[in-house]
Every structure is written in structure tokens, then in C-alpha cells.
């Protein structure tokens, strides 16, 4: 039946980063390990028995809400989906996401992400009678045509892609770059069969999609397995390149002094 055996209780040492607003240190805790246990279970156990004020975010504990993002042994992960059996022997380090300001322990200030979302033009459907919109206003879309958008709409906003993206993590370009999560959001709208808005100016000027050099780190950490780079960012980059950097279009624009 199950590949998870009922192994005898064992213990593991967790080195959890504890501190407030950027200053702190690793503290060691020992947790009892039961079959099938995930890192979030260990954090809860530590909270309930050893450190009641240990701060961490979580909600669904099933990989559906994207709250418990942290770095386990230095890798951006959802703690609720990181099975103990998947980790190598030895101490387990748990640290907050590095790219966002620390609040306390494993909790970081992710408000910057919420600000990015506001910059994206919302869904703007075509008018009645246009392609894909019936006379009564309801949409007519084929499954195959909505699937591209649906892939991006699987995003649970865990912000692990933002955390791992080197433009944010190493270069801290938060002022001029919105990050993979919001390219995915823009892609979900741009590829909606009846959407009519134009988000290319956002992608080029505000979102800073040009900073992405397609290292695919975001795709690797996505718990929803969204092909962020291949399916969202590259097609959007192509659109932006066609519009702003196509030599023929550039010449045309230079001749007629159109700015876009």
C-alpha cells in the first residue's frame, strides 16, 4: 500500500533562525520524527513544546495556500510539502526567505509583492458580440484555449519564485522589477482568450521584464510546477521585443515619432 513505513520514533536536530528585524541567530531544537512528517510539523512541535513564541506563517498545510514559505537547508521550499524523508541525514536548517525584510523568526515582510499586483491592469473582457463573447455577455472559449491561462492561475502566491530570483535576491532591483510571480499574473491575463488590455508597456517599463536573463531558478522552486520561464516569461519577452526592439518597427517609430 503505502511507501511510508511505520519506522520507530527518531529525533532530528533543527537549527532554526530566530530573531527580529534582521538580527538574530540559529537556535537548536530537537524534534521527534514520525512517519511521513514534514518540516512544518517539526516547527509546530517545537512551538508547542519548546518555543511558544516561535513565529512562522502557515494555513492549509497541504500546499494550497502558499503561506509557509521558508528556506530549508538553504533552499526555498514550502515547509508543509518538505518531507523529512526527502532531506539528507544531519541537522536541518530552517531560515526565513532571504529576499524579503525579516519581521521575526521565519516571518518576513512580503508586502512589496502585494504592491506589484496593483500595477497590473486588471482583466478587461471584450464587448458583447466580439469573438468569444456571446450576445448575452457570457464567454465562449474552448478548453484548449483556456489551458494556457489556467496553468498560470494555479499560482498560490508563495513568493518562492520571487525569493529565489537573483534579480531580487542578489541585485535587489525591487524598485524596477516586479518578479516572476507578476509576470505569471500578467501572462494569465495576456493569454486569456477574451482579454483586450495591453500590458506590454507595464512589462517593459514598470515590471522590468528585461532584467530577467532566463536562468529558470523560479521554475525550479515552483511548488505548483508552473513552467514560469518557458511558458510565461519567454513568450512575454518575445512580445516586448517584437514591439520595442524590432528594427523595422523601431525605424517606423523613429520616422513617425511614435512612442509606446
Amino acid at each position: 500500500m503505502s511507501s511510508i513505513g511505520s519506522a520507530a520514533a527518531a529525533t532530528r536536530t533543527f537549527k532554526v533562525w530566530r530573531g527580529e528585524r534582521g538580527t538574530g541567530e540559529f537556535k537548536s531544537f530537537t524534534a521527534e520524527i514520525s512517519p511521513g512528517m514534514v518540516v512544518l510539523d517539526a516547527i509546530h512541535q517545537i512551538q508547542a513544546t519548546q518555543a511558544p513564541d516561535l513565529a512562522c506563517r502557515w494555513n492549509c498545510k497541504a500546499g494550497k495556500c502558499g503561506s509557509c514559505s521558508a528556506e530549508v537547508n538553504g533552499k526555498p521550499r514550502l515547509m508543509c510539502l518538505t518531507r523529512m524523508e526527502s532531506l539528507p541525514d544531519g541537522d536541518v536548517t530552517v531560515t526565513p526567505m532571504k529576499s524579503f525584510p525579516s519581521i521575526k523568526d521565519l516571518v518576513t515582510d512580503v508586502s512589496w509583492n502585494y504592491e506589484q499586483n496593483k500595477k497590473i491592469t486588471p482583466f478587461t473582457p471584450a464587448k458583447r458580440g466580439a469573438a468569444g463573447v456571446a450576445a448575452d455577455g457570457t464567454f465562449r472559449m474552448q478548453q484548449v484555449d483556456v489551458e494556457r491561462s489556467q496553468e498560470f492561475r494555479k499560482c498560490i502566491e508563495c513568493f518562492l519564485c520571487q525569493d529565489t530570483c537573483h534579480v531580487i535576491r542578489d541585485h535587489d532591483k525591487k524598485e524596477v522589477f516586479s518578479g516572476p510571480r507578476f509576470f505569471v499574473r500578467a501572462a494569465s491575463l495576456e493569454m486569456h482568450p477574451v482579454d483586450t488590455a495591453d500590458r506590454e508597456p507595464f512589462l517593459k517599463h514598470t515590471g522590468g521584464i528585461g532584467f530577467c536573463n532566463i536562468t529558470k531558478c523560479c521554475t525550479e522552486v515552483c511548488p505548483e510546477h508552473i513552467k514560469i520561464t518557458d511558458n510565461a516569461i519567454i513568450p512575454l519577452k518575445e512580445r516586448v521585443a517584437d514591439r520595442y526592439y524590432d528594427p523595422v518597427v523601431m525605424l517606423w517609430r523613429w520616422m513617425f515619432k511614435k512612442k509606446g
Binding site: D53, I103, D105
Partner: peptide
């Protein structure tokens, strides 16, 4: 709930 009021789940 020992400790302070900052993000204190206890």
C-alpha cells in the same frame, strides 16, 4: 504567553 508581543503565536 511568555516573551513579547511581536509576532507571538503563543
Amino acid at each position: 504567553a511568555p516573551a513579547n508581543r511581536e509576532y507571538n503565536p503563543g
